[in-house]
Design a protein around this nucleic acid. Structure first.
Ligand SMILES: [Mn+2]
Ligand SMILES: [Mn+2]
Ligand SMILES: [Mn+2]
Ligand SMILES: [Mn+2]
Lengths: 221, 221
DNA sequence: TTTATTTTTTAGATTAATCTAAATCAATAA
DNA sequence: TTATTGATTTAGATTAATCTAAAAAATAAA
C-alpha cells in the first residue's frame, strides 16, 4: 500500500464513499462539494492520487478507485469506525459527538494500535451508526439495509443504521426515541407528504417526515 | 491559548523540555539537534512561535518559553502521557512501544476527549515512565527524584521513573528486571568505573553501569 | 584587541495543499 | 452542426515546513 498524506487519505475516503465502494465514477465537482475545496484543488489532488495508483483518472471524465485504493480506503474506514466504537463504548461519547474526533484519529499510523484497539473493543462488527467495520483484510460484512421509507403499511423490521450521521439528525433521533436496534412497525403512511406513523418496540408511536424516514435504515422481518 | 500547528506543537514541547520547564534559555542549535531539523528551519519556526507569543525570542540569544507557552506545552504533555497510560493499561502495549504512537495522538484536538480519557483511566498521576501527568490546569505534581547514581553505599529507595525513555533502554531494564515501583538498595559502588551492585526487592542482585544508573530515577527512603 | 571559529540568521528553493482567474474541453441545445 | 453553457483543468499565487548556501553576529583564541 502506498503511503498517503493526511489530505490524500481524506480524498480517497471521499472517493470510496461517493463511488459507493467503487461501483460508480466520481466527478471533480462532486468531490469538490464533499471536500469543501475548489474544483481546481481537486484536479491537483486527483493527479497525485493517480500517481500513487489508488485511483484511475481520465482527465475530464472523473475517477474510479483502484483495487489498491479500495484496500487503503477500507483501512481508513476501519480505523474511523473502531475509534467511534471506542469513543461511545469506553469514553461515554454519544453517537452524535464522535464523528469529528474519529475524523482525526483515523489518520494515526500504527498497525499494532488498531489490532489491539480492535481486540480491546471485542472485535465489534458495527460502529455506533450501524455501519460495518471492515476487518484487517478489508473484508466487510455488509447487511442488506433498506430505508424505512421502503416498508409498506403494517410491515415491520429493526433499525440497523442511519444514512445521515450529522449531529443534528442523530440528536433528533435521540429526542424522539429512535435508536439502533429498535423494533418498528409501520402503522400509517400518509399519501400526501410521504410521512409515516410507526410503532417503536411495541410501545410508543412516532410520527416522522419522509425525509427523516429516508435516513433510517432497516432490516425487514 | 493560541492555536498551534502540528509542527509548532512539537517545537514548543521540545523547548519546554530542553529549558527544563522554562527554567533555562534554549539555543537554536540545541533545538535543531532535538528536532532533527537544520538550524535555518529552527530560526524560521522561532519567528512563528514568537509571533504567537508562546516564546520570547531575541535573535542570536536563544529563547525562553512564555507563561502562555508553558500552558500550551503542558497541555500537549498531558495528552501525550495520558495516551501512554491508555496504551499500556488498556491496550497492553509495553512501556517501550508507546512513545511514537503517543507522539501522534498528543496532537488530536478535542478537550472533551482528553477529559473523558482522563476519567476513563482513573485520573492517573504518572505515566508508564514515571513522569507526572499535568492536570487540566497544567498543574504538575512533581516528586523529588534523584538518579540512582546519587545514592550512597547501603542507601535504599524505590525506582519511580526513567530519564531515558528510548525503547533500547527500556527493554534493557525489562531484561534485567528493573521496573517502576521496585525497591532497591545499593550493595556496592565500584570506584573505578562508577558501576553499581544493587539489590532489587530484597531478592535479586543486579550489576549496572554508571550510565544505566544515571538514567534510573529514585525516591530515597 | 584583532583574528578565527562557531552559531545563528537570511536568501532563495522545494513540496504539499490550498486558492483565484483564465483557458479549455465536453455536453447540450438551437 | 455550430454556438452556448457548464464542468474541468491549467497557470500563477500563497502559506507552512522544510532544505542548502551565503551572510552576519557572537564568542573564543591568539
Ligand atoms: Mn479524516
Ligand atoms: Mn460512523
Ligand atoms: Mn508529536
Ligand atoms: Mn512517557
Amino acid at each position: 500500500m502506498p503511503s498517503l498524506t493526511y489530505a490524500e487519505e481524506n480524498y480517497l475516503k471521499a472517493i470510496y464513499h461517493l463511488s459507493d465502494g467503487g461501483k460508480h465514477n466520481v466527478s471533480t465537482n462532486d468531490l469538490s462539494k464533499e471536500m469543501k475545496t475548489k474544483p481546481a484543488s481537486v484536479s491537483d489532488m486527483l493527479r497525485k492520487l493517480s500517481d500513487k495508483e489508488v485511483i484511475n483518472y481520465r482527465k475530464y471524465y472523473g475517477v474510479t478507485i483502484t483495487e489498491e485504493g479500495k484496500k487503503s480506503a477500507l483501512q481508513i474506514i476501519r480505523k474511523h469506525r473502531l475509534w467511534e466504537v471506542f469513543l461511545v463504548e469506553k469514553l461515554m461519547f454519544s453517537w452524535d459527538e464522535v464523528h469529528d474526533v474519529a475524523e482525526e484519529l483515523e489518520h494515526i499510523k500504527s498497525t499494532i494500535l488498531i489490532q489491539r484497539l480492535d481486540d480491546f473493543l471485542g472485535n465489534p462488527k458495527y460502529d455506533p451508526h450501524g455501519d460495518p467495520i471492515p476487518d484487517e483484510f478489508g473484508d466487510v460484512k455488509a447487511r442488506p439495509r433498506i430505508p424505512l421509507n421502503d416498508l409498506g403499511l403494517n410491515d415491520s423490521g429493526q433499525i440497523v443504521a442511519v444514512k445521515d450521521s450529522s449531529a443534528a439528525f442523530l440528536r433528533y433521533l435521540d429526542k424522539v426515541g429512535a435508536y439502533i436496534g429498535a423494533r418498528i412497525k409501520i402503522l400509517d403512511k400518509v399519501e400526501f407528504d410521504g410521512s409515516l406513523e410507526i410503532l417503536v418496540d411495541n410501545k410508543k408511536t412516532l410520527f416522522m417526515s419522509k425525509d427523516v424516514a429516508g435516513n433510517i435504515l432497516i432490516i425487514q422481518s
